[in-house]
Design a protein around this nucleic acid. Structure first.
Length: 481
RNA sequence: GUCCCCAUCGUCUAGCUCGGCCUAGGACACCGGCCUUUCACGUCGGUAACACGGGUUCAAAUCCCGUUGGGGACGCCA
């Protein structure tokens, strides 16, 4: 049997990294088993669903390289196009006495919940309308439609006795007493099916073999299984992934700062790094930390998924990003960094080869593309500003003459302007003034970069070029009083 | 509150399925040495964990029970 998994985000906001991890695991499981990965859009909530969110979700997945075999733009994979199917499913349950109209008002339900809370009981539906409509009349019940005056909901008649057993691929066996499962609403009074109902029909129709999702859905599972049974269908296998928590141990959410895929993309992270981080959060393959996409496909399995929730560790993600940054082919890196240069309001160098050389000097010092551009500031600007503190410390009178001579030496370098020729110029100055390298290098660094921290001074100068170096050295000399 | 899930270094985890090889391994972070023109990179080393209590057993991080702690769910959201 071909494995078929699905990821079903709802387009009501950004694609969240905790959420996308579930999608990633479903995707990897499908790929590992040479199966089919399906993207389905849970947009039954038309109030909150937006085109903008949908676009962000699709673009985020593409950016991550999580490709789906079935899904958008095929309209079949949008729940909003399947209402007829949901109605049909509801009618079937109604006809068979497995669902019933509920006339309880939202206010009464709310009051009931509060009351239950006060009395320390579980706040489920009390079943008031369960027997209200004679079974014989159930087949004639129409679906709710407020505008037509049919202001009620349809509830699923959940079995009261017995147990429902979830044999989860990750968590193992979880047994639920059916008495714990109240009658959930499957159709809202506005005529829209609810998630728990629509998802069952979808999973059945699309022949999903493995439902992979966060374990916050575990309590829903026995309810969904009962709907499968009521429909005469066999439930899929389930794999409930542990959740991703914020540093405070609470479910990861917006208040934890950057949590969307787009946020990390814009912060200058690589998709490989995010993917690698996410896959190692809750899954492992021995001591291996770095995984290529192919290795993920090859090794991924639920057997190696942990059962406990993991805390999102931004520092490890940063380390992974650094790893991928160091490994990146310079040609590729040069392309990827351009949008970040532009975004900072700097002009993008026209010479790709030069850009690559520049990046080569910086990449072991930056962990993200944003940092990379921050460090590149002095390379990319024509005029730099010297940090006053650095100037006070290093641009002193005793170094004025050596700097001036060095400028002359560098200016007179003929032919090949390289690290070697720059070094030769330095050595001449060092020798004639009896200075140590450190005594000259720091002032030069301050003069050409504006600060005390930079890549090796020879490489900086070689990349910066003769004229800009000389110009900056002379400007510094002029500044020394 | 009720139901469900979970429990190895600060964090992610290996080991647990099939008890002995565990003096509990790796990674991030942290601390220190080396390298060095600054900052980094790199490299070498270090601190740091089986939640607790009972069993079972010759032997338990590994199996069982309980306690405690954490999380999730309890919606006309998904």
């Amino acid at each position: 049997m071909t494995v078929r998994t699905r990821y079903a985000p709802s387009p009501t906001g950004s694609l969240h990294i905790g959420n996308v991890r579930s999608g990633l695991f479903a995707y990897l499981f499908a790929r590992h088993n040479k199966g089919v990965f399906i993207l389905r859009i849970d947009d039954t909530d038309r109030e909150r669903s937006t085109q903008e969110s949908l676009n962000e979700i699709l673009e985020s997945l593409r950016w991550l390289g999580v490709d789906w075999d079935e899904g958008p733009p095929d309209p079949k994979y949008f729940q909003s196009t399947r209402f007829d199917r949901y109605r049909e499913g509801a009618f079937k349950l109604l006809r068979e006495g497995k669902a019933y109209p509920c006339y309880c008002t939202a206010q009464r339900l709310d009051e009931m919940r509060k009351q239950a809370e006060r009395e320390h009981r579980k706040p489920g539906y009390d079943g008031r309308c369960r027997e209200r409509t004679p079974v014989a009349d159930l087949g004639n019940v129409q679906l709710p439609d407020k505008t037509a005056g049919r202001n009620y909901t349809i509830r699923f008649r959940s079995p009261r006795a017995g147990q429902t057993v979830v044999d989860d691929l990750i968590k193992g066996r979880a047994v639920f007493d059916n008495s714990e499962l109240d009658d959930l609403i499957i159709f809202r009074s506005d005529g829209v099916p609810t998630y728990n109902f629509a998802t069952v029909l979808d999973d059945a129709d699309f022949e999903i073999t493995h439902v992979v999702r966060g374990d916050d859905h575990l309590p829903n599972t026995p309810r969904q299984m009962q709907i499968f049974y009521a429909l005469g269908l066999t439930p899929p296998a389930y794999a409930h992934l542990p959740m991703v928590m914020g540093p405070d141990g609470q479910k990861l959410s917006k208040r934890h700062g950057a949590t969307s895929v787009f946020a990390y993309r814009d912060l200058g992270y690589f998709p490989e790094a995010l993917l690698n981080y996410l896959v190692r959060l809750g899954w492992s393959h021995g001591d291996q930390e770095i995984f290529s996409r192919e290795e993920m496909f090859e090794y991924f399995d639920f057997a190696n998924c942990g059962k406990s929730a993991g805390i999102f560790n931004a520092e490890k993600l940063l380390w992974l990003n650094f790893h991928y940054l160091k490994e990146r082919p310079l040609v590729q890196l040069a392309q990827e960094v351009k949008p970040f240069i532009a975004r900072k309001g700097l002009s993008i160098p026209g010479d790709d080869e030069w850009l690559q050389k520049m990046l080569a000097t910086l990449r072991e010092r930056a962990k993200t593309l944003v940092e990379l551009v921050d460090f590149a500031d002095f390379y990319l600007k024509d005029r730099i500003e010297i940090e006053p503190k650095a100037a006070a410390k290093f641009l002193k009178l005793e170094i004025k003459e050596p700097l001036s001579v060095l400028a002359d030496r560098i200016e007179s370098i003929g032919g090949d302007f390289s690290e070697q020729s720059v070094q030769a110029a330095f050595e001449q100055v060092l020798a004639s003034f009896g200075l140590k390298l450190g005594q000259l290098a720091q002032p030069v660094r301050v003069a050409v970069t504006g600060g005390t921290v930079s890549p090796g001074i020879y490489e900086v100068i070689a990349v910066l070029g003769k004229s800009r170096t000389v110009e900056r050295l002379r400007a510094a000399v002029a500044q020394i009083k």
